[in-house]
Design a protein around this nucleic acid. Structure first.
Lengths: 349, 349
DNA sequence: GTTAGCACTCAGGGAAAGCGAGTGCTAAAC
DNA sequence: GTTTAGCACTCGCTTTCCCTGAGTGCTAAC
């Protein structure tokens, strides 16, 4: 038995109708939506074939048909019409991203909320460097005899600073020495190596200075580690409650717990494709076995990359979600391209 | 009719039993829990009195009794036994707060999650200054001819920095001039005044410098505004789904939306008392009319103050929540007292 | 290959019945 | 006056049963 064009057409109608109503779709309804060209009896024959081929399922004998994961997959791969965003939708995205680009974390969490509100499903957002970061430059600003501000400049122009307190007094003249030492020995190296280098210079400088030094390096290590660790922000878990498949509080609770407490297990594809759709059992995590995830990637500067994902029931409006999500990803890429949050790395390096 | 000791005792049992089981409490159960000193018939008479006095309600004729908000209030004010935290609970709190004290925001959001997990209800956390903040000191670190790092030191030793790009080249020798200007004209003032001062010096310095100056001041304004604005973090909304009163998805959704989208309306008492309990209709927001909120405050340094709140059904285990919450608040206060995140303000000022 | 017709299936909804926890009242006991 | 046993009554909840109707699968005719 082969998959004729008409069968595909019917599958498409079933998916779209089921997505809309969340109710199994009957032969009559399909015949109606196909313009009455064929009768419901014909449709029934076709439906039986589609079920046998594994594209449709039947909740029980006397109910309509529901797409199987395989059916959704075919729909997504071949049948789905690529939607374009309307002008007002594009405007909505831009509006949502019209935020002060302060820290990356904030942008990401704001983006998460916005995406979720935009697609009406829970969403998650991440950003991670493609290679490990390193300190580009150190600076120390004396505050008083016992404390100073450590300024650490990372790649991509990210700057962080913190107040340090040396327990022992340090001469102001010593600071340039320390800064020199920091910049000559502790720049350009990955976090793991910094502590080794610290050990190497341990004996060569007086204790008060070393204390400050190690505090600064420790701070830098923290920053690098934090920059390397990808932070995952989830938003809009509450959207689940609007869906009929999650009216059951236990089910909703389970997935929400997953979204908030085990974010790390959310799918984070490494490959570079612009968009990925995981349907039901295609998901690795058990908790996502009967949900679908749509993931788009966006660029942050040259070598950082982020993901936006949307989690929903397998009965998801893939066409709309895909369109909106990729619109969002594009907007983010554009925004990071033009904005000053992460200026281009200096060429002279 | 007066409120005898025995009536109070019965009310206490009703509250505690109802909190435990979420089911209306019957006369027999009460008699049993009071050691069989009186019969259920006697209890019934007392229950009728308590209902008439407004401390109890009856969902329907043939059901047991349920505390009214007034009943809970009496319980909280007079009847509730102040619980002490067990050693393991104290340890659990300390464990949860054993985090790197990086930025205030992170500490707060981590604390929110921890509190929520600890009491099994949604929680929220805030921090706000008691008076408006001001910049204590500026510093500019040249990076190359066109950009520099602005370091802004606020009260309480909070330091923030950002990379600025002047569109026009600036001589390195000019930076100390600029820093002087910044420190002499733009420190100690509230955010609102900074822009006025910027106008005053506008004509007196060359454009490239002024550009950098205004960027720096703008950055400082943002920081001050951000520091003044109290950020509210909510966590653990999903805990609601475990409660029988929120098995209804719509109800849960409504409260969750409130918790995530209209946080600002959560109760934030101004008065200094260490703990506040709002029961059902005592809440101002409609969305909280049949929930209760328990709020504790903690100190951050000398003149910042934070709140932790817990939101739950009126049928809340007030004794335990109150004990755990105040334990948490104490732990936070202690932590901020000893930690270096916000060192004491220098006395010489 | 398509269609009309028809018997069959089965979830969902509503009515009816039974159950049981709990009440309120009365009258007797303390 | 307070407490208690006894008893009739109430009423939400659960179960059962029946009915309805949407939808199917099959067969036979087109």
């Amino acid at each position: 038995m082969e998959l004729t064009d008409r069968k595909k057409q019917i599958l498409k109608v079933v998916v779209e109708e089921y997505v809309r109503t969340a109710e199994p779709v009957g032969s009559k309804a399909i015949a109606a939506r196909m313009g009455g060209a064929v009768s419901s009896a014909t449709i029934r024959n076709e439906l039986a074939d589609l079920a046998e081929l594994g594209y449709l399922e039947q909740p029980h004998t006397s109910a309509g048909r529901v797409p199987s994961p395989r059916g959704y997959r075919l729909y997504v791969n071949e049948l789905m019409e690529r939607q374009k965003l309307s002008l007002s939708e594009t405007e909505e995205i831009n509006q949502a991203l019209r935020i002060k680009m302060e820290e990356l974390d904030r942008v990401i969490s704001q983006a998460g909320r916005a995406v979720s509100a935009f697609v009406n499903y829970p969403a998650y957002v991440t950003a991670a460097g493609r290679r490990s970061a390193a300190v580009r430059r150190f600076e120390l600003l004396p505050v008083d005899g016992e404390s100073c501000i450590a300024v650490v400049m990372l790649d991509h122009g990210r700057v962080k600073s913190q107040l340090l307190r040396a327990q022992l007094p340090v001469e102001v003249e010593q600071f340039p020495v320390l800064v020199n030492l920091l910049n000559s020995h502790f720049t350009g190296a990955p976090a793991g190596e910094l502590n080794q280098r610290l050990m190497q210079v341990a004996g060569q400088i007086p204790p008060p200075l070393f204390l400050l030094l190690s505090q600064t390096v420790g701070y830098a290590c923290d920053l690098l580690e934090e920059a390397g660790r990808r932070e995952i922000v989830t938003a809009g878990a509450k959207e689940l409650l609007k869906l009929p498949e999650f009216r059951d509080a236990d089910k909703a609770h389970e997935l929400m717990s997953f979204l908030t407490d085990r974010k790390e297990s959310l799918p984070m594809p490494e490959d570079e494709g612009p968009m990925k759709i995981l349907i039901g059992p295609e998901n690795v995590s058990d908790a996502l076995k009967d949900t679908s995830v749509v993931i788009a990637s966006y660029d942050i500067g040259q070598d950082m990359r982020g993901l936006i994902g949307v989690v929903g029931p397998t009965r998801m409006d893939y066409a709309t979600v895909a369109a909106r999500l990729s619109g969002f990803a594009d907007a983010l890429t554009r925004m990071f391209g033009t904005h000053t949050l992460l200026p281009k790395e200096e060429p002279k390096e």
